[in-house]
């Protein structure tokens, strides 16, 4: 093949590649890049939502944010929620994956049942849990009273620290299947020869777990923790629907703060400032995760 023709073919391919990616790029620009840039731009304005009239205020929104107690308490709540629910997800997720990895009866049925909460709508999950938590007729209070653990019905969502604990628990229930599936997939790829070798060396089940299983899981756990930390940090639906951020602002995380500021207090400029600040905090995790994924692809 002569060189001139090859470059013509290559040029044609490059053009075809560009045409195929064009719809993606157009949609990305219209619904993601443009809104992202205007979110940053809006954060420099003061906008009243109903009339959409705005005035330039420069960086003063950011100055206000730094001095605002509500922002810091929301950030703190956000961290408590993320760390709390994420740790439970990891602990239960790994334990459940280890159980499902064993030879249990009707394993695929068990796996389906475990997986279901992850895919069910948050709205459904919240409705069901609100019914379980119901103060008068909920099954949770009934079981606790019958078993003698408490004499009075517990208010799961209306007082602190109950509300935060409940939200963290429901979050762990809904999202731990993600950890189960990811860990289970990894467990199935650990070569049996490794366990065999450890057994020959005289390692019992416990030391086999710590010397073979744990090191093999470390990689995947790091990825899961980063991914779930990002997703839990930005969770809106579950907390909003369970407590609405209440009592008062005790379970209000940053996404709820943004929503409240924009659509309840009608301050879109300030809300954008909160959103941009939240994104800046998340950026640390996002970059860590992206760098990791990319270095993995290069190797």
């Amino acid at each position: 093949m002569n060189p001139a023709r090859r470059t013509r073919l290559e040029r044609e391919y490059a053009l075809l590649g560009a045409i195929l990616i064009a719809p993606t790029v157009l949609i990305f620009c219209a619904v993601i890049v443009y809104p992202l840039v205007s979110a940053i731009y809006l954060s420099l304005f003061q906008v009243f939502t109903p009339t959409l009239e705005g005035s330039w205020v420069g960086l003063s929104n950011y100055r206000e944010l730094l001095g605002k107690e509500e922002f810091w308490t929301s950030l703190l709540n956000n961290i408590i929620w993320t760390v709390g629910t994420l740790s439970l997800q990891i602990i239960f997720g790994v334990a459940m994956a280890l159980i499902l990895h064993q030879n249990m009866w009707f394993r695929s049925l068990a796996r389906s049942l475990i997986l279901f909460p992850y895919f069910v709508s948050t709205v459904v999950a919240v409705l069901v849990w609100k019914w379980l938590f119901n103060d008068l007729y909920g099954i949770m209070n009934h079981l606790l009273i019958v078993s003698g653990l408490t004499d009075f019905p517990i208010d799961y969502l209306g007082t602190m620290p109950n509300a935060m604990i409940s939200v963290i628990l429901v979050g762990a229930w809904k999202y731990f299947p993600f950890v189960v599936i990811a860990v289970l997939a990894r467990l199935q790829t650990i070569p049996d020869a490794l366990y065999e070798a450890a057994r020959i060396d005289g390692a019992g089940p416990i030391s086999r777990f710590f010397d073979v299983t744990v090191p093999q899981l470390r990689e995947v756990l790091v990825v899961i923790i980063m991914l779930r930390a990002i997703w839990d940090f930005k969770e809106f639906d579950m907390i909003y629907l369970l407590t609405g951020g209440g009592p008062i602002t005790s379970t209000q995380t940053l996404p709820l703060l943004v929503y409240k500021e924009a659509f309840k207090l009608n301050q879109m400029g300030m809300a954008s400032t909160y959103a941009v600040a939240m994104m800046a905090i998340m950026l640390v995790f996002m970059i860590l995760y992206i760098r990791r994924t990319r270095s993995e692809e290069d190797t």
Partner: peptide
Amino acid sequence: SLAFIVLFTYLLPSVVLIIPLYLM
């Protein structure tokens, strides 16, 4: 860089986009 942007937006919180999208 396009692949990078895809991964980035895959992680982006919707509350950041929702206000400009609403206005748009």
